[in-house]
Write a protein that binds this DNA or RNA. Structure first.
Length: 558
RNA sequence: UGACCCAUGGUGUAAUGGUAACACUCCGGUUUUUGGUACCGUCAUUCUAGGUUCGAGUCCUAGUGGGUCAACCA
């Protein structure tokens, strides 16, 4: 008998379930993701994408992708492509072809004419300054424009002439006739059409007037039959206007519901600030692995599934929130632990010579590709007399709980033998040059009869077989969780100069020689890494996605 | 001197008038040929004051605190 588990719903799902129960729209659910094609998608968009697509999916509905391209000045086809790529990469499928608000310019124009005929819109000849001055302030009502009382016929004629290009940019606008005394600034006769004699990325030079957001978004929702228009909280003041247009135009009643957008520690989503990072060369482009862009996270090695799980776990509500970066990293590790191929790479190598191992001998050893996944198979490692281990895995005068290599002690080499450290060579500056050890021939992995149980296990590579590679160690972009917490301090003050450290002397096991860009690995005891697109056949580059959880370093800090 | 939205552990999110829970973090432990994983455990929560009610995190009022709104941007 299945235990009945009460599943908790977020407030949007509750609304939808009530709608379904009451038979609204015959239970049909259609959402939309409406990006403006004027920039790259970031973590905040990922959240909006997840909410819109997953909510629809959950209730057997679907989601439209609609480009909100009503401002020809800022928009470009370049972004139309990257946005689609990012959504697909996240694993979502929109309904049919991508849609464009610009496809509705004709209908939108007709809607405006309808409004004029109902006496609900008028052409205003005021200058932008005059309009701003008449707008009032949040605590003072606005004043009616002297043009508000124009006749329907005159408005009709002027609006048509605006469309025909008879007037200069900025000389006239079409405004909705709502209420200049409304406490809601957006209801104070909002501008709904402006003159812009500019080339549009899709409609070319057909139009020289373009609708504003408020006169395009809701109507586009309505035209498409969107049932639930899910957007972030800052649009809440637009809702009365959204509803007003639908009511006056007598069109399909889409409804807007607002959720709080998601903030994440150490990430910023301001387009202006991200652009600043790019322009100042503090990151290497929009897809730099430190960037909170979807393309950046992809290059960093964050799996799409991890980002989706993260957005789910962050939840949906209406209060301001900042999600800890810990949660994102936990989701990334959880996913990668299941899927990433294991490999051994020594980031900061120091040589070990096994003095009782024959000089000309090598052995093939087998290693699991992923202990979490029996189907991942295994691979061959070459073992020999000379190896590299991690410099930090050796300590001459080790503290009691140090389980790694130290003189006189035993330590296991992963998938290989147990070593007994016998001594070291140092240079004039006291730096360790070479570590000497003996091995226990009967301690081979899988057939160990030595009876020795070392506390620690180290990763290693064969000195003769290993290949050099480049490792890019990425860390958080900022030194504080919220670099914008004080508007008087430039956020670049908190740029983390150590957000990227390049290691040029790392040694990788030879199985990684032909690694393809995008492949994700767990480098044993180091973290998760992925092959970067900058890799060439003779020079493999790895990005550190995220480190492993590390309890030893915490121990040391005590 | 306006309107609107919000307030639950460190961080998020549930609890839909009836025992405040889940995840992540932190801390501790067991297992481990990754100081990883897995598993177990500990600490810790309803902004304040009134009111309604047998009973309030939930409903009402006021206060406090936070956020948002005055682009021919979206």
């Amino acid at each position: 008998m299945a235990e009945e588990r009460k599943e908790s719903l977020n407030f949007i799902e509750q609304i939808i379930e009530e709608d379904i129960k009451s038979g609204r729209n015959n239970g049909k659910i259609l959402t939309r993701f409406p990006p403006e094609p004027n920039g790259y998608l970031h973590i905040g968009h990922a959240k909006a994408i997840c909410i819109n697509f997953e909510t629809a999916l959950k209730y057997g509905g679907s989601t439209n992708l609609r480009f909100d391209d009503t401002n020809p000045t800022t928009e470009d086809t370049e972004y139309v492509e990257s946005i689609q790529e990012d959504i697909r990469w996240l694993g979502f499928v929109w309904k049919g072809e991508p849609l464009y608000a610009s496809d509705y310019f004709g209908q939108l124009y007709d809607f405006a004419v309808k409004l004029i005929k109902k006496g609900l819109a008028y052409v205003d000849d005021s200058t932008p300054e005059e309009i701003a001055n008449m707008k009032g302030t949040p605590s003072e009502p606005g004043k009616d424009s002297p043009y508000k009382s124009r006749s329907v016929d005159e408005n009709l004629e002027l609006f048509e002439r605006m469309k025909n290009g008879e007037f200069e940019d900025g000389s006239r606008v079409l405004r909705a006739n709502v209420n200049m005394a409304s406490p809601n600034m957006l209801m104070r006769d909002p501008i709904i059409y402006r003159i812009k004699k500019e080339h549009h990325h899709r409609t070319g030079d057909v139009w020289c007037i373009y609708p504003m957001y408020d006169f395009a978004h809701g109507q586009s929702d309505s035209i498409e039959g969107i049932t639930h228009s899910l957007c972030s909280l800052e649009f809440i003041h637009h809702r009365p206007l959204y509803d007003w247009f639908i009511e006056k135009l007598e069109i399909f009643p889409s409804r807007q519901k607002e959720f709080a957008r998601m903030n994440v520690e150490y990430m910023i989503t301001s387009k202006r600030k991200l652009l600043k990072l790019v322009n100042d060369g503090l990151v290497n482009g929009w897809d730099d692995p430190r960037m909170p862009t979807i393309s950046g996270m992809r290059r960093r090695g964050y799996p799409a599934q991890a980002i989706r799980v993260f957005c789910d776990k962050a939840g949906v509500a209406k209060r301001e929130n900042t999600i800890e970066i810990n949660l994102l990293e936990a989701c990334v590790r959880e996913e990668l632990n299941k899927t990433a191929i294991r490999a051994m790479v020594v980031l900061d190598p120091v040589k070990v010579i096994i003095t009782n191992y024959p000089e000309d001998k090598t052995e093939d050893l087998t290693a699991d590709n992923n202990p979490e996944d029996p189907n991942a198979g295994n691979r061959v490692l070459t073992f020999g007399r000379e190896l590299y281990i991690e410099r930090e895995d050796f300590m001459e005068n080790a503290p009691p709980k140090y389980f790694r290599m130290t003189t006189g002690a035993d330590v296991r080499l992963k998938n290989a033998y147990i070593l007994h450290c016998t001594g070291v060579d140092k240079d004039a500056e006291d730096n360790i040059q070479t570590i000497y050890a003996t091995y226990y021939a009967d301690s081979k992995s899988g057939e160990d009869v030595s009876g020795i149980k070392p506390k620690g296990t180290l990763h290693w590579v064969s000195a003769t077989d290993a290949l050099s590679c480049e490792i890019r160690m990425y860390d958080r972009l900022f030194t504080v969780p919220d670099p914008t917490f004080d508007e008087n301090i430039d956020f670049l003050e908190f740029y983390n100069n150590e957000s990227l450290k390049i290691l040029n002397h790392a040694k990788m096991e030879s199985s990684l020689k032909n690694s393809m860009p995008g492949t994700q690995y767990q480098f044993l005891r180091q973290g998760y890494f992925c092959t970067d697109a900058d890799s060439t056949p003779g020079h493999i580059v790895f990005n550190r996605t995220v480190g492993l959880k590390e309890s030893f370093s915490k121990e040391v800090r005590k």
